[in-house]
């Protein structure tokens, strides 16, 4: 084997490239298309970080939309009729009426406790 005076090659330290995140970027361009690519390169962030940042941005937008909807609802004069609750008394009366009609109980009519 012949020795060869070829200088060694040293790449120096470089960020590791994740092939799966590269593929993810290619498969889902819509999610991270709006990410500032220059900024991304500047901070040397991998694509996963960019995705997290994008998700956080979208969450922020949703939060703002919810807040604006709340404001809109506040401004509107929405009056709802409070449903009249059926109190126990009339119901009890109706029940007692039915039961007495069938001739099963008398104490309900008299208002006595049913022990």
């Amino acid at each position: 084997m012949k020795g060869f005076s070829c200088p060694d090659i040293d790449t120096g330290w470089k960020p590791v490239i994740h092939e799966d995140s590269q593929n993810a970027r290619a498969d889902r361009p819509s999610l991270i298309d709006n990410v500032d690519e220059d900024k991304h390169a500047e901070y040397d962030m991998p694509a996963t970080d960019a995705q997290i940042r994008e998700i956080l941005r979208m969450l922020g937008e949703i939060q703002r939309e919810i807040a604006s909807l709340k404001q809109m609802i506040k401004g509107m004069d929405i009056s709802c009729r409070v449903p009249e609750g059926r109190k126990g008394k009339p119901r009890k009366r109706r029940l007692a009426k039915k039961l007495t009609a069938w001739g099963e109980v008398d104490h309900v009519r008299n208002g006595e406790p049913s022990i």
Partner: peptide
């Protein structure tokens, strides 16, 4: 492995050949 700051360096050395 998931560390976003992970870096690598490659060193190719001692090149030799046979003919």
């Amino acid at each position: 492995l998931e560390n976003p700051g992970l870096k690598s360096t490659i060193i190719l050395s001692n090149l030799r050949y046979e003919t």
